[in-house]
Write a protein that binds this DNA or RNA. Structure first.
Lengths: 133, 133
DNA sequence: GCTTGCCCTAGAGCCGACTCTAGGACCTAG
DNA sequence: CTAGGTCCTAGAGTCGGCTCTAGGGCAAGC
């Protein structure tokens, strides 16, 4: 069950470089090492890493993840702080999704316009001028 | 109605720098200039710029927008190419939204966990251990 | 005629997030 | 005992997308 950095890279899809980089950036203070200095990853680390990838994928910048990691390390006294950090992130993600939805709508309208134009075989009715861009 | 770069910057929220940068990157081949060499923007440019911002906001990289711009400039012979480019982008945006939704779900679950923990006043029931991170 | 304010170009700088290189240690198998 | 594979650190490089600087032009108003 204890994994080497290479195995974790394989499982998570992150590169070995990225894992070390994340550690250097303070995403997880994990001085758990084998005798030769090699990193050892267990279930806890994998779980945390999974959370990190989700936070990254939703646009949380590394410094903020580091902050959250620091709070977690601090212990149960930081629960309120963690909660508000997560809530703020949730709001940002929701906003981001709304914006994406707007973009998606626009693109879909454009796709529909082009499809109509092609279906009309260049012979657009008066109320459907060919799309400009 | 013809606007200067500064006015366009004000209206779009993009910086003057960014507008010139976009032009340099080929996002719009617009050599429409006043006598002194100053750029002039009309409705067509504003529309196109709006589309550009939506595409950027949905993660389309500049080179791809440039490619689309080139197709538009090429004329109506490139309609199929534009359509497929837009369709591909639409797919990417949809995928991105799904991923974001997954992240949002995870974050929301974590928020709920922390809220439960706080509501229980540190006295969590057996089936609700305090959250680890 | 000089200041003010907007515009121009070319090019440098910055930031975030990786990504890779150099140089070296350790361990195992042949 | 040496070759291969995986690991280590420190630090440099890359890439995308801006952002800013230096140095200068033009036009209006005092």
């Amino acid at each position: 069950m204890p994994l080497s950095i290479g195995q974790v890279a394989e499982r998570t899809g992150l590169s070995v470089h990225t894992l070390r980089f994340y550690e250097k950036e303070g995403l997880f203070a994990m001085p758990v090492r084998r005798v030769g200095g090699q990193r050892v990853y267990g279930d806890a680390e994998l779980d945390w890493l999974y959370l990190c990838t989700r936070l990254r994928a939703s646009g949380m910048p590394l410094p903020l993840i580091r902050e959250y990691a620091a709070l977690v390390r601090e212990g149960m006294t930081t629960v309120e702080a963690r909660l508000s950090l997560l809530r703020e992130h949730r709001e940002r993600v929701a906003a981001q999704m709304e914006e994406l939805q707007g973009c998606l709508d626009l693109v879909s309208r454009k796709v529909a316009m082009y499809e109509d134009h092609l279906a009309a075989d260049g012979d657009d009715p008066l109320w459907t001028r060919p799309p400009v861009n």
